[in-house]
Write a protein that binds this DNA or RNA. Structure first.
Lengths: 330, 330
DNA sequence: ATACAAAATGTAAACCATTACATTATTGTT
DNA sequence: AACAATAATGTAATGGTTTACATTTTGTAT
């Protein structure tokens, strides 16, 4: 059952039916009604593949993300989805499990016209893949979100440097001087930026950076628990912890508790990302909140503008806020 | 740039190129090479819309879910996605925000051949929509996952009745008799089933069901905190809490703490779903773990079988396990 | 009533890949 | 060497929509 069946039923040409379908100009109310009636009685639904083929557009976008099981990203995707929905786009989710092959496989789908563009969410890429991605971005609309791969691709995120600067500064202003910094062992732009923020805040406050106060985890709870515990064995004195992720902050927090420290009296703990847990745990965890919904929405808007050859920003920096809770005495 | 450009370049017909593309039978190694070379030099990618139109298949599936921002569902989706990937399918995520209109809108896309089938994830539907869904399921492969809408549609989930029976029974066996049951104020199949499990376990252990020991929330933390607090004001004695969700369990737990109760000495708390938080909080929370990955995978396998007219199960019941942690003294 | 402009509708080509059927090339048999 | 059988390739139709261009209808002015 296709458009010409409808045309026959309505006693008009397929062109007219198509015009009604796309409510394009110049078609009489009377014929609109005839056609609409035919559509209704036949319960006709236009075939998307035919349409896509003809207009060379899919109204799909790809979201390429390492993992969905991370509320940071799933909230971001909600932002993307809501805006996509408004604009009539559908969202294909592609999770890569950190596999570059899987990521490149998905990007390949763009060339096959499975989607009109893609949003790269927190994606990391090494030299070779970076070059391939840049190449792809020349022919297909691409947006990078919350993590930076290449300067030639529009970018949406918070200012990671400033956020961690603010955290460190706030801890220092509350009287803390020896701040254990828990970073992640990757080469992500944001990781680097945050580390710079930490170091700069120290130096701006006249505190000498001490590399012994930096340990590296993998964003997970267990590892953070472990490495903090190991660190504490060294008996190096600290009075605060700043972590690049909440899970890591919790790992540290529990390691500290296990070692008899009081939070926040002895040691303040600051997380990053403000996951749900932060306000449910005891003590509740101070953290940096980003508005993922807005980031996602902006990303989708940028992509939409690219797809439609409208002007767009190469860089969109969104807001964040520090949320002070029981794990700090600020 | 299309298949006939490749054909021209390779000096063969489009049919041969197509055969190479689909590595179908009877094409000489020599021509395969010629064609492959042409494909490579032209960097040709077959157009999916053209292909979809011709073969009347998209290799897309829809996942319709209320919210992604819920690790229960995002883990499930990971299971779906992994299996979909193996089978060469792409996953379109449609979040409905509990809006039946949005859900029906997405189901409508199936009729337009946007996808070959759909998985309904934890979706609720009232009379009218239930009928529409059943209708749709007659012409399009549909699977319902973790929540039951209609018996005519294949269903994958744990046995909710038995899971809550086991929780209640375990609490009773550990010496608890007055178990506050925190349910959700919806009419979901699983909600009903769990409640039955609770009541049956009580009666099987010779404990009379007391409707004063049942309160209703909305799966959220704050509401649970509130309603538990309200309940405690009544000074009704309890020695355990069983909640239909972990967030609710945490709300109860914190309300109990605030009211001076010791967990688990005074009151045991049991959650449901085993969210990440469970092993990071203090006390750690006892909970029911489902293997979402497997549920998702089974759902996708069932859908795949339906799409390909292979035999499939109408009901797939997956395993769960009770995880005992610090919030109970079992 | 006529001429003409503007509005409404129709015709047919185009988008791209797959595949039934037709044709040509190859191999093996006698 | 001739022929049959089989393998390899080619031709052309098909799927459903959109749209440039052609044609018809409607409306307006004289």
């Amino acid at each position: 059952m296709n458009i010409s069946d409808v045309a026959k039923k309505a006693g008009v040409s397929v062109a007219t039916v198509s015009r009604v379908l796309n409510n394009s100009s110049s078609v009489t109310q009377k014929t609109v009604k005839k056609v609409q009636d035919a559509i209704d009685t036949l319960n006709y639904k236009p075939n998307i593949a035919g349409r896509n083929l003809r207009i060379n557009k899919t109204n799909n976008i790809l979201v390429i993300v390492n993992s969905l099981v991370n509320t940071f990203f799933s909230k971001l995707i909600k932002g993307i989805e809501d805006t996509a929905f408004e604009k009539g786009y559908n969202v294909l989710i592609c999770t890569t499990d950190n596999s570059p092959e899987k990521m490149m496989h998905y990007l390949d789908l763009l060339g096959k016209k499975l989607a009109d563009g893609a949003i790269l969410l927190g994606i990391e890429a090494d030299g070779a893949n970076k070059a391939r991605i840049r190449k792809i971005s020349e022919s297909v609309p691409l947006v990078q979100c919350s993590e930076r791969i290449d300067d030639s691709i529009p970018y949406i995120a918070i200012n990671s440097f400033k956020a961690m600067y603010d955290v460190t500064d706030a801890l220092i202003k509350s009287g803390r001087k020896r701040i254990l910094y828990i970073s992640a062992d990757n080469s992500l732009f944001s990781t680097e930026q945050r580390f710079d923020g930490y170091k700069t805040a120290l130096s701006d406050n006249g505190i000498k950076f001490d590399s012994k106060l930096v340990i590296y985890g993998n964003y997970g709870y267990r590892t953070a628990l472990q490495i903090t515990d190991n660190f504490l064995k060294k008996k190096i004195k600290i009075d605060a912890v700043a972590a690049v992720g909440d899970r890591m902050a919790y790992g540290a927090l529990n390691a500290l508790k296990n070692n008899g420290f009081k939070i926040p009296e002895d040691i303040s703990v600051f997380g990053f990302d403000n996951i749900d847990l932060c306000h449910m745990s005891s003590p509740t965890l101070s953290s940096v909140n980003q508005n993922q919904q807005i980031i996602g929405s902006k990303a989708m808007e940028t992509l939409f503008a690219m797809i439609n050859d409208e002007p767009y920003e190469m860089e969109t920096i969104t807001d964040y806020e520090l949320i002070f809770r029981e794990s700090t005495n600020i």
